[in-house]
């Protein structure tokens, strides 16, 4: 009774994890009315992409010992992390501004430009 999954972790398994994170993030961005919640969705999406980058860059996971991306995967993951931090800073500043002006963080109320 050996499980097929155990001991044979491959790139595909990481991709599935990345896909789940990505989907959750997309749903989160679409569903949440709270601006902070939307931000969390973005973080999840970027994180899911990061899992893929690392999986493709990992020699440890590669079936034939040579990873698809090599070092580039990890470098890309690093850049994604940095840009996610930058994005979070600006988005939070915007949220704070919005809150100061409207006393709410409900993104559905941000319709000033609606005409």
């Amino acid at each position: 009774m050996t499980f097929a999954l155990f001991g044979v972790v491959s790139v595909s398994h990481y991709l599935v994890v990345g896909a789940i994170l990505f989907t959750c993030g997309v749903v989160c961005m679409a569903l949440k009315r709270n601006a902070v919640g939307v931000l969390m969705g973005i973080e999840l999406v970027l994180n899911g992409a990061n899992v893929n980058f690392v999986a493709f860059g990992s020699e440890y996971l590669a079936g034939d010992g040579r990873s698809v991306l090599g070092l580039d995967g990890e470098v890309m993951a690093l850049f994604v992390i940095l840009l996610a931090a930058a994005e979070a800073a600006v988005a939070l500043a915007i949220t704070l501004n919005f809150y100061n002006n409207h006393a709410t963080v409900d993104v559905d109320r941000a319709d000033d430009l609606h005409g």
């Binding site: 973080e43 994180n47 899992v51 440890y60 990890e74 940095l82 996610a84």
Partner: peptide, 28 residues
């Protein structure tokens, strides 16, 4: 996810994930 990165052999990315990403979430 940082744990997954460590498992995949990407230690530096994992540590950075803990430091920057999770720290950024702290602000959230």
């Amino acid at each position: 996810t940082a744990g997954l990165f460590f498992l995949a052999g990407a230690e530096f990315v994992g540590a950075m994930q803990l430091m920057i990403y999770v720290g950024g979430t702290l602000v959230l």
